[in-house]
Simulated scan of single mutants.
Amino acid sequence: MIHAHLVLLGEGGEDMEKVGRAIEPDNLPNMNLLIDELCLRLQFSIEKPGTLLTTMDDLLMNIKIAREMLSVAEER
């Protein structure tokens, strides 16, 4: 079993709580997402290294999209 812990810090007043809530529906049963105003903390366990890489890639892409969407919404 591979255990992963990912911490993402917000930039320049970015509301990480909104980003966390946007990606929360994608969480797998073996994921734990801790959210506060300044950062996201994701903890999860995976059986295979390939699955870990795929999961991390999906998470980072979903976070990128959520951040971009929130940025566009704030500009309007």
Rank of each mutant, 00 (worst) to 15 (best):
V72M: 04
E37P: 07
N32Y: 00
M16V: 04
E74G: 07
E47G: 08
K48G: 04
R76D: 07
K48L: 05
I2Q: 06
F44L: 14
G13M: 06
E37I: 14
E74Q: 12
G50T: 00
R67W: 04
L8T: 06
T55C: 09
P49S: 03
E37G: 05
L33A: 01
L6E: 03
R41I: 14
V7A: 07
E75K: 08
R67K: 15
A4N: 07
L70N: 01
I65K: 06
T54H: 12
K64C: 03
G50M: 08
E14S: 01
L52Q: 03
D15G: 05
E14R: 04
K64N: 10
L33T: 08
M16W: 05
D57P: 04
M61W: 06
L60W: 04
M69S: 09
H5E: 14
I2R: 09
G20D: 03
L9D: 13
T51C: 02
P29A: 14
E68K: 10
L33D: 00
L34C: 10
G10R: 01
N62Y: 05
H3V: 13
R67T: 03
E11G: 00
R41H: 11
A66N: 03
L60Q: 12
G12L: 01
D58A: 14
L53Q: 11
A66C: 08
E17K: 09
T51I: 03
N62S: 14
T51N: 11
L38K: 14
M69Y: 02
K64A: 11
G50R: 01
E47K: 12
E68I: 03
P49W: 07
M16H: 06
N62F: 06
V7P: 08
P29S: 13
L38H: 14
L59T: 10
K18S: 13
E37K: 15
E24P: 06
E24M: 09
A66D: 03
M56D: 02
N30S: 15
E47F: 05
A73P: 09
R76M: 11
K48W: 00
L8Y: 05
M69H: 04
R21I: 10
L28P: 02
H5R: 15
D15A: 13
P29I: 11
C39P: 00
D36N: 15
I63E: 04
L42R: 01
L9W: 00
L42E: 02
L8V: 12
L6S: 07
G13L: 04
E68S: 10
S45L: 07
L42P: 02
E68D: 01
M31R: 11
V72A: 05
L8K: 06
N30Q: 15
R67C: 02
A73S: 12
E17P: 04
M69T: 12
L9M: 10
I35A: 07
E74W: 02
L9Q: 13
A66Y: 02
N62D: 12
E68C: 05
T51D: 13
E68G: 09
F44T: 11
G10A: 08
L6D: 03
N30H: 14
D36K: 00
L6V: 15
L70E: 08
L33G: 02
L42Q: 03
D57T: 13
T54N: 12
E74A: 14
C39R: 12
D57S: 14
C39L: 10
C39N: 09
G50E: 06
